[in-house]
Structures are given as structure tokens and as C-alpha cells.
């Protein structure tokens, strides 16, 4: 599963990527996480508030670090 984390490299963006990686490991799910840090690329998803998460080409979350339960929902 390909997951994109959109954000300019701030602490919350890093925390989001780390959380997704950790939850995926615990759930035994294989994921590929790509960090998108370029502003133009971030906004190309229609996103203004970061961190944001894109799963399967769809923006599933934006504006905060997601909860572990939210991440599990995306991995299901």
C-alpha cells in the first residue's frame, strides 16, 4: 500500500510518518511511505493544512497528527 505524507518537514509531519510506519509494522501490513515536502506538490493535492495523508490517491486526513485508530482504518 502506497501512502503519502504531505508536509514541509516539520515535527508533526515526521511524527505522522513515524506513526504510520509503526502502526503498519504492528498490524503486519506492508506500506510504502513517501514524504512530499515541496509546497507546490503539497498544494497540488488541494491541501492547505499539514500534515496531510494521501492513501490510494485520496486525501484521508489533514491538519494534525492522526490517531493510531485512524491509521489502522486506512490500512484495513
Amino acid at each position: 500500500m502506497d501512502i503519502k505524507v504531505l508536509g514541509p518537514g516539520c515535527a508533526k509531519c515526521k511524527a505522522t510518518a513515524d506513526l504510520i510506519s509503526r502502526v503498519a509494522d504492528q498490524a503486519g501490513k506492508a506500506v510504502t511511505i513517501e514524504k512530499i515536502e515541496d509546497m507546490r506538490q503539497i498544494v497540488s493535492f488541494g491541501v492547505m493544512t499539514t500534515p496531510a495523508v494521501v492513501v490510494g490517491g485520496k486525501v484521508v486526513h489533514k491538519g494534525s497528527v492522526p490517531s493510531p485508530d485512524q491509521v489502522l482504518g486506512w490500512l484495513a
Binding site: 507546490r40 498544494v43 497540488s44 493535492f45 485520496k58 486525501v59 486526513h61 489533514k62
Partner: peptide
């Protein structure tokens, strides 16, 4: 959350 489509800018 959003059905936003990616666009090349």
C-alpha cells in the same frame, strides 16, 4: 475526508 484530485500546478 476529501475527494480532492491531484493537479499538476
Amino acid at each position: 475526508m476529501s475527494e480532492a484530485v491531484r493537479k499538476d500546478l
